[in-house]
Design a protein around this nucleic acid. Structure first.
Length: 493
RNA sequence: GCGAGUGUAGCUUAGUGGUAAAGCCUCGGCCUUCCAAGCCGAUGACGAGAGUUCGAUCCUCUUCACUCGCUCCA
């Protein structure tokens, strides 16, 4: 643990996560695994609560969205059709002079003619250095720089004379570069116990393709008519080049994705609709609105098939970062699978009596990122009362209520234990009789438990208990038979 | 993967070429009638491996992990 960065709020959250059993580093007793994380007793409850809330909000509570659960391992052709085999391969180059790393295909390329003195440079789709001949290259400009190789020289007109002279560092302009190294972002594995004969497959880099390849199955069996959606929560794997910021970017992560199938003509309103719905979701999780924003992608950021993409971003300690992308993907995904599989994945529109390929609005969120958001947003230090508090929304708090006897005598523990056992049938509870009452409250504040029930001497007289609020520290007295109803209302509100 | 930095109990810090100290936390006990009180006791660490050395937590090398950049995304 780096000592000089201990003041960083993220370090405090990491420390709390470990101290209270939210998140541990993977394989810690063997020295740890780079950017792999394990969820402890409180973390798994929090994570599950987030996923359950998403599932309810996106699927169960809607009559036009259904869920599914596809396997992590799929036919290798899925990833050829989806474009991942081609696009998840980044050729990366390091500049030995300024230590910058960049994508080879996006760096300036220098070309020359093998027959004459013609030389020119291509950077970001633009030809520089020889403006006189720019028009001659117009048809090539839209293509990858590599495709310039072997074209006809515009100066001496020799066919196939253009060759690549070299690549230039986009940062310092130097040419002292390493060989391009291919980075495949998909995890490969063998499907079958005998490695040499087993087929090579991939761990899915996103859950979305499991939905697309099952589009016809779900459409045929669910009796849904477009517009309708299919949602899924599950693990995905990417060999990210750079991981970090705690659980923000890791190689194994969990997604909550929903593909909403609409008529390819019109229905533009659905894109806006889902942007709003998804933004509201984070507010319902208790995230402060001033820390959330929507950011529409510029034209240069969009994939070629996407008509629009908007990110939900959260203001982390390390800056604004993406939690979720809402994308108008048009008919790209189903078109690709129709092409690659040869199967009919079209939808029969009874109104117009025609077959159509539905367009798709995708909402793709990260579970772990949402969890980090929830923790970051809930964490605060109450200097006045010398405590650290996680003000988690009661809906997602790992423990809903803690039950205490004020002191360990006069029958208080027995009463408190009975209250705890009764409540546990309905919600996650925690019983604690060790140490002073103040210490027990503090422990629960750090765990994000929103409510505390305490049995005191007045309970022995009139049967009432105190209900403490984590955030305001206020206490009210309640008759024992009102505890459950009061808590259920607060937790589900 | 490249460059720079860091690594001593769960946390925060001492310290030394002769295997290490403290506070907080945790656990047990006493005491405690509403917000980390007190007393007694207990658990617990030199990231891992190799080398130099009579002896390494300290010196050297390797490795692992973390932090900050570069590139990518949920």
């Amino acid at each position: 643990m780096a000592k000089q960065t201990k003041q960083d709020p993220m370090d405090k959250i990491m420390s709390l996560c470990k101290r209270r059993g939210f998140i541990f580093q993977s394989s810690e007793i063997y020295g740890g695994m780079n950017s792999c994380w394990d969820y402890g007793p409180l973390g798994v409850e929090l994570k599950r609560n987030i996923k359950n809330f998403w599932w309810h909000n996106m699927i169960t509570s809607r009559n036009n969205v259904v869920g599914m659960d596809a396997g992590i391992m799929m036919h290798p052709k899925v990833w050829e059709a989806s474009g991942h085999v081609a696009n998840f391969n980044d050729p990366l180059v390091d500049c030995k002079d300024c230590k910058t790393r960049f994508r080879e295909d996006k760096a300036p390329h220098k070309f020359k003619c093998s027959k004459c003195v013609m030389k020119f440079e291509v950077d970001n789709g633009r030809i520089t250095g020889k403006s006189k001949y720019t028009n001659e290259f117009e048809s090539l400009v839209a293509n990858e720089p590599a495709s310039y190789i072997g074209s006809t020289c515009p100066r001496c007109k020799n066919e196939g004379a253009i060759e690549l002279e070299g690549i230039v560092c986009p940062n310092c302009g130097g040419t002292n570069l390493t060989e391009a190294k291919n980075f495949n972002l998909m995890f490969k594995t063998h499907y079958g116990p005998a490695e040499d004969t087993a087929s090579q497959i991939y761990l899915r880099p996103e859950t979305a393709q499991g939905i697309f390849v099952n589009f016809a199955n779900v459409e045929n069996t669910s009796r849904l008519k477009i517009p309708f959606g299919i949602g899924q929560i599950g693990k995905a794997f990417r060999n990210e080049i750079t991981t970090g910021n705690f659980i923000f970017r890791s190689r194994e992560f969990e997604q909550m994705e929903m593909e909403f199938f609409i008529h390819p003509d019109g229905n533009k309103g659905w894109y806006e609709y889902w942007i709003n719905e998804r933004f509201e979701f984070y507010k319902l999780l208790g995230i402060k609105e001033e820390n959330l924003r929507l950011r529409a992608h510029g034209q240069d950021e969009l994939a070629h098939y996407a008509r629009g993409c908007t990110d939900v971003e959260y203001k982390f300690y390390f800056g604004w970062s993406e939690l979720e992308g809402i994308a108008d993907r048009q008919t790209f995904d189903l078109d690709q699978h129709i092409k690659a599989s040869g199967k009919n994945l079209s939808y029969f529109d009874a109104d117009t009596n025609t077959h159509i390929v539905p367009a798709v609005i995708e909402t793709s969120a990260g579970v772990d990122r949402t969890l980090l958001t929830v923790l970051s947003d809930a964490y605060w230090e109450d200097d006045e009362n010398e405590r650290i508090v996680l003000s988690l929304h009661p809906r997602i708090a790992p423990t809903k209520v803690a039950v205490f006897p004020l002191v360990n005598k006069d029958g208080m523990p027995e009463i408190a234990e009975k209250i705890n056992n009764d409540l546990r049938k309905y919600m996650a509870t925690f019983y604690d009789k060790a140490g002073s009452i103040g210490r027990r409250y503090r422990r629960q504040d750090e765990a994000g438990t929103p409510f505390g029930i305490t049995v005191d001497s007045q309970t022995l007289e009139d049967g009432t208990v105190t209900l403490r609020d984590r955030d305001t520290l206020e206490q009210v007295r309640l008759p024992q038979d009102k505890i459950l109803a009061t808590l259920l209302e607060k937790v589900n509100s």
